[in-house]
Structure formats: structure tokens, C-alpha cells
């Protein structure tokens, strides 16, 4: 019960973060979307045993978090929530792939462990990038950007309405659960049967509300297309952001920067 409520507060906190006006927040949503997608694509394009090559990519989330004034602890917590998915995707690799790939003194690392680590790093990088996109742009603007870039209109509209009514539905669900817990004693009444009734109830209420919302939309001339008046404009700074980062990603993808840096450090130490 408290759980449902607090997790909704959490979602709306992500939304609150997007109301800031830092230099990152002011960038055009499309630019941020493209850059994030490009970042994710580059990170995913590495070979399955790659670890060293991925490390430099940390710079993107770090710079954006710093410039966008985003709370790093909060974002990491969100990443952790999703971490089990990646964990279970990767955890079988060490069992399947036992060939020794790296010899660290007495320690032998099998290819499976290396690829597992690689999966986890990729996961952290990509999920953090996606979270940063939402926290610095706002879900609505991301939807608008999707639509402006040619994603199907109905998809964008669905996402917008989903996001708008997520909170209303969450409120309704938490009221239902609260009403139940107030009349539940010694865990009687917490059973599965009551739960299914509640879900059904929620569905019916949702259908009713959907009908009313649709009426309200029709009353104001809705004809299947949602028009939004704010024109988006891509300026020089936006382009600079996109090209600069994309260029850096390509460089980091093509050249083994950690090795160079290692080499430089070794030179200096000599």
C-alpha cells in the first residue's frame, strides 16, 4: 500500500527534475533523443568481451548529470531497480562459456565472466542515459520529439495519455488498497480473490473514465489528432551538442582510448 504510493511519488519526482532550466534542459528534445539513441547504439555495438572500450563512455552520463544538476544517488537507485533483469540475462554466461580468456596472476577469468561484466556495464550505461534523457527533458517532450521525428502519431498520443493518467490510476489504486487495508483484520480479506475483484473494479472504473475523457475531448473538437502549439527549434548550440557527442562516441568506438592513456601513463612513469 505504502509501496504503491511511494513509487508513484518517485515517478513524479523524475518529472519534477525535468522542470529545471539548466543548459542541458534547454536543449531541443529531439537533439537529446537522437544523441541518447546514438549513445546507446554505440555502446551496444561493441564485441561481447569488450570491457576496456566501454569505460570511456562513462563520461557522457557524468557530464550530463553534472551540467543538468541531476541527483546522482536517485538515478543510481533507479538503475539498481532494473538491474535484476540484466543480471538474469547475463548470469548464465559464466556457466556456458568456461574457456579461460584472461589470466590475472593466479586468477583465471573465463570468457563467461568477462561477457557478464560487459553486459552489466552496458546495462548501467544505457539505462543511465535513458533516465538522464527523461529527467532532463520530461516524458511529454520526449513523446513530442518522437512524434516530430516521424514516429506514428497514435503511438505518441497513447504514450502522452498513458503518462497523464498513470497518476490518476495510481491514485485510484492506492485509494482502493487503502480502503481494503482499513477493513482488513489479521490478514483476512487480503486473499487472491479479493485482489481479483479489486483489479476488476479498477478496470471498470478505468473504462468509465476513458469514456468521460473521450467525451470531454470530443466536446473540444478532438478529431483523432492531438495538436500541440509549441514549436520546437533547433539552434546552433543544439547541433553542437549532438555533433560533438556523436563525434566523441565514434572516436571512442574506433580507437582504444584506454590503451593510449595506459600507454601515456606508462611513458610518464618510465
Amino acid at each position: 500500500m505504502a509501496n504503491i504510493e511511494s513509487s508513484f511519488l518517485d515517478v513524479s519526482y523524475l518529472d519534477t527534475l525535468s522542470y529545471q532550466t539548466t543548459i542541458i534542459h534547454r536543449l531541443d528534445p529531439r537533439i537529446k533523443l537522437i544523441t541518447t539513441l546514438f549513445f546507446i547504439a554505440t555502446v551496444l555495438s561493441f564485441g561481447k568481451y569488450e570491457i576496456a572500450g566501454l569505460i570511456p563512455f562513462v563520461i557522457y552520463p557524468v557530464v550530463l548529470i553534472a551540467l543538468g544538476n541531476l541527483p546522482i544517488a536517485y538515478l543510481l537507485k533507479k538503475v539498481l531497480v532494473a538491474a535484476p533483469f540484466a543480471f538474469f540475462v547475463g548470469i548464465f554466461n559464466p556457466l556456458m562459456d568456461r574457456a579461460v580468456l584472461v589470466q590475472l596472476g593466479p586468477l583465471e577469468l573465463s570468457g563467461g565472466w568477462v561477457s557478464f561484466a560487459s553486459i552489466m556495464i552496458r546495462f548501467i550505461l544505457t539505462v543511465t542515459a535513458a533516465l538522464i534523457l527523461i529527467a532532463s527533458t520530461g516524458f511529454n517532450s520526449v513523446c513530442m520529439a518522437l512524434e516530430k521525428m516521424g514516429a506514428p502519431k497514435s503511438l505518441a498520443v497513447q504514450l502522452l495519455l498513458l503518462y497523464r493518467y498513470l497518476f490518476v490510476l495510481g491514485d485510484e489504486a492506492s485509494r482502493l488498497t487503502r480502503a481494503r487495508s482499513l477493513r482488513t483484520f489479521e490478514s483476512r480479506g487480503l486473499g487472491f480473490k479479493v485482489f481479483t475483484n479489486m483489479i476488476g473494479q479498477l478496470l471498470l472504473r478505468t473504462l468509465d473514465r476513458a469514456k468521460r475523457v473521450h467525451l470531454a475531448m470530443r466536446c473540444r473538437g478532438f478529431d483523432g489528432e492531438i495538436r500541440v502549439s509549441r514549436p520546437l527549434k533547433i539552434g546552433g548550440r543544439d547541433l553542437g551538442f549532438m555533433l560533438g557527442w556523436s563525434g566523441l562516441f565514434v572516436l571512442m568506438r574506433l580507437y582504444p582510448i584506454p590503451q593510449w592513456m595506459g600507454g601515456m601513463v606508462a611513458e610518464l612513469l618510465k
Binding site: 497523464r164 490518476v168 473514465r209 468521460r212 475523457v213 470531454a216 475531448m217 502549439s229
Partner: peptide
Amino acid sequence: RRTVGMVFQDPDDQLFMPVVYDDVAFGPLN
């Protein structure tokens, strides 16, 4: 529908756009 403006009982039914401005602009844009 242009002549008659209807204010629903539950504002949550009526305010379906993500931001207040967009919601008020919804009718005129349509």
C-alpha cells in the same frame, strides 16, 4: 460544440493534456 462549452464534474476527466497550457490550447488548436 463551438457554441456550447461544457465543464465536466471531475476536472481530471477534462484536463487530459500533460501541461495546463496545452490543455487550454487544445480546443482553439482543434
